[in-house]
């Protein structure tokens, strides 16, 4: 009997010791998992800053953020979609659409009407996707893949296959969204930052945001808790298309002319930024703040590589390595081992 007690005591002690060391390990792992991307970002910035002083010069930093703004604004919307457990591969093609439409309408009905009209049309497309994925419960990957193609067709039809240009490029106030600046800060940055704050608050602090996480984390359980899943998913796609319309506005305003394919391929870059920020494709995790970090990392990589004299396309390959490392370390921290258990 005494023997049993003895082993029990040792066991409890062992467990306690084990738990303590486990806890600290867990804590480190947890910090890495939660803030790993931030740590990597800081290290990265320091590294490049040491390599080239110009990298952290204010005008360079502003320049990078400004050129990341279009991608960034789109990534904000896609973050909602991804957290709700879905994908949106149509944003690139949709951005081309918005850009072409607003440029075309600019000369026909004037900018003051063109902008709301373009937002309306883009939101309509977003609503169609939201209806298909949310209410009809169709697979989002395929729906948005189909929409990628369909919207591209729509854009080509709208433009007649031609590039779109504003006739009077000098005399329009429309250029303010892409080229203007307030107190020395470029307007695209202000739009990006403002939208990030608003959407970040919505996601983190409002009941709707909570429901987005619930639907993405476990859609069935959310339904069983009275959350109207279809409506939440629908709203996420609306948010995404709103962001796309904003990105299209910036794009159009910056160049005042555009090809049909201006957004082509951006869907995957946007997704890369969101994933880099640590959102899981399974849904239920990610934040707007992390997505912004993801966007900035992509932007600064591109810029840093250019500054050290490398071509723009080197960033593709660097991005590849960084995305895989980021996601890998994230899941490695969660599962507690570096290598996958797959035999």
């Amino acid at each position: 009997m005494s023997e049993t007690t003895d082993t029990g005591g040792t066991r409890a002690q062992g467990a306690r010791e084990g738990r303590m060391s486990g806890l600290s390990k867990e804590k480190i792992g947890g910090i890495l998992a939660r803030q790993g991307i931030l740590v990597a970002f800081v290290l990265f910035m320091v590294g490049f800053a040491l390599a080239n002083q110009r990298f952290i010069a204010p005008d360079n930093v502003l320049g990078v953020i400004r050129s990341s703004a279009i991608l960034g604004v789109m990534a904000l919307g896609v973050t909602f979609v991804v957290i709700s457990g879905n994908l949106d591969l149509s944003v690139g093609s949709m951005m081309s659409f918005s850009t072409i439409v607003v440029l075309d309408l600019h000369d026909q009905i004037g900018p003051a009407l063109a902008i709301p009209a373009m937002f309306g049309l883009t939101l309509l497309i977003g609503a169609v996707i939201g209806f298909l994925v949310g209410y009809l419960r169709l697979n989002s990957l395929i729906v948005t893949l189909g929409m990628l193609s369909a919207i591209h067709g729509l854009t080509l039809t709208w433009s007649g296959g031609q590039n779109m240009d504003i006739a009077d490029k000098e005399g329009t106030w429309f250029s303010v969204f892409g080229q203007g600046s307030v107190l020395g800060i470029p307007v695209p940055i202000l739009i990006f930052a403002g939208l990030a704050v608003v959407l970040g608050l919505i996601l983190a602090k409002t009941p709707f945001g909570r429901k987005v996480y619930a639907v993405g984390g476990n859609g069935v359980a959310a339904t069983f808790s009275g959350v109207r899943r279809a409506r939440v998913v629908f709203m996420c796609y609306l948010a995404s298309s709103f962001c796309v319309a904003t990105a299209g506005l910036i794009q159009a305003s910056r160049s005042l002319g555009s090809q049909n394919t201006v957004g082509q391929g951006m869907e995957l870059e946007v997704l890369a930024a969101v994933i880099l920020g640590g959102a899981s494709l399974l849904g239920g995790s990610g934040t707007i703040f992390k997505t912004v970090i993801g966007v900035l990392i992509l932007g600064f990589i591109k810029n840093g590589l250019l500054l050290v004299g490398l071509q723009f396309y080197v960033q593709y390959t660097v991005t590849w390595v960084i995305i895989i490392l980021a996601v890998w370390l994230d899941i490695a921290a969660k599962r507690g081992r570096l290598w996958s258990p797959i035999a």
Binding site: P207, N218, V220
Partner: peptide
Amino acid sequence: GQGLVLGMNCRDNMTLPQVDDLT
């Protein structure tokens, strides 16, 4: 599968049905 969002915390799970009213 149906009762809980396992990745969310205890509080958020508990208040999920009435989160619209707790503002």
